[in-house]
């Protein structure tokens, strides 16, 4: 028993040493992004500025709860998430403060920046219509709304309504189409479902490419296809090669996008360092990393997206104000429940 107890004790001490860090120049970051390139960027930032980046990664929803419960004493300096409606929510609940930096404003396309400077976008993905190249001609596709037509009965693949990307997409349509039309659009989708919603974005692509295909069109994020095409798993590459990308609503409201971004917390004790990190992340150098490593679109207009995205061509994106998307999230979820989108 004794050796066990002493081991436990030593481990406890070691744990405290790992957990406690000296804090001369730091940015404390709460983020829901999980990518390797993010870590690369923070390391680069530390190398350049000597500022240490401390990180807690968890879901955006619960991170907001954590910041709120920590209150005035919250150690968080920056809140970063893959979902702009959560940034809007953080703003509305008073846990963000505006940044004061012309560099950021200059770096970022104004479509992707909060009008009051409470947060800035860092990267962007498009939620497009993916189709099986053998069974669907791009000429058959036009808009998200057109996926409600009877020709798509039993052919449309969508993941579940608990998914944040889907919730955001529906929420963006509420201000565009109004509640009633949004409702009939998603009711039309549900009627055309190829199967009960299951799996993640990649599984929708896989279901189209299977020997016994379950559907012909799906709505998913571009960067998953990019990642599948360059995957180390040959089966994933084979799937992605059969899938075509169509940017819907080009003549109308634009293709839905989701933006990841970050804002400085209202209780931050390291505002200068946090601002510096935001400036760095929106700089051309860092934006090139966002674009290159993860198939995301850069938000800095001076940076080109990766070759895969360039080959897909330019597109018009939705320009619904982020605050309106955020305010429509509840309505969107209610509509999804009402049309029985599981």
């Amino acid at each position: 028993m004794k050796p066990i107890i002493s081991t436990v004790f030593v481990l406890f001490i070691a744990l405290f040493l790992v957990a406690c860090q000296s804090d001369d120049q730091v940015v404390n970051l709460y983020t829901s992004r999980h990518y390797d390139i993010d870590q690369e960027l923070y390391d680069l930032f530390t190398e350049e500025t000597g500022i240490q980046v401390n990180i807690i990664q968890a879901g955006g929803d619960v991170l907001i709860e954590r910041i709120l419960s920590e209150g005035e004493n919250s150690p968080a300096d920056l809140f970063m998430t893959v979902n702009v409606s959560l940034l809007e929510e953080a703003k509305a609940r008073g846990i963000l403060q505006p940044f004061d930096s012309n560099t950021i404003v200059d770096n970022v396309d104004q479509d992707f920046i909060d009008p009051d400077n409470f947060y800035t976008g860092l990267s962007m993905r498009a939620r497009i219509i993916a189709y099986h190249k053998d069974r669907v001609q791009p000429s058959e596709l036009s808009t998200y709304e057109a996926l409600t037509e009877p020709q798509w009965r039993g052919r449309l693949l969508l993941r579940s309504s608990s998914n944040m990307y889907n919730q955001n997409m529906v929420a963006a349509f509420v201000p565009l189409l109004g509640e009633a039309d949004t409702r009939s659009m998603i009711q039309g989708w549900v009627n055309n479902f190829a199967r009960d919603p299951q799996g993640n974005d990649r599984d929708q692509a896989r279901a189209m490419a299977a020997t016994n295909p379950e559907g012909d069109v799906a709505i998913l994020n571009t960067y998953y296809l990019g990642l599948m095409l360059t995957s180390s798993d040959p089966a994933d590459v084979a799937v992605a090669e059969q899938i075509g990308v169509f940017f819907p609503n080009q003549a109308t409201t634009g293709t839905h996008i989701n933006v990841s971004g970050a804002g400085i917390t209202s209780t931050s004790k390291n505002v200068a360092a946090a601002t510096q990190l935001l400036e760095f992340l929106t700089s051309e150098r860092a934006q090139a990393v966002f674009a290159g490593g993860n198939f995301e679109y850069p938000v800095n207009p001076r940076v080109e997206p990766t070759q895969f995205l360039q080959d897909l061509g330019p597109f018009n994106h939705q320009t619904v104000p982020f605050s309106q998307i955020s305010q429509s999230m509840e309505t969107a979820y209610r509509l999804m429940l009402e049309v029985d989108w599981t």
């Binding site: 957990a19 860090q21 999980h34 990180i55 974005d201 995957s231």
Partner: peptide
């Protein structure tokens, strides 16, 4: 995920980092 201190990773959180982004491999 939610309650950990800064820069604190367990094997489970490292595994999940990728699974969360559909890169379970």
């Amino acid at each position: 995920l939610v309650l950990r201190p800064f820069n604190f990773n367990t094997l489970a959180t490292l595994t999940f980092r990728y699974a969360a982004e559909e890169q379970v491999a």
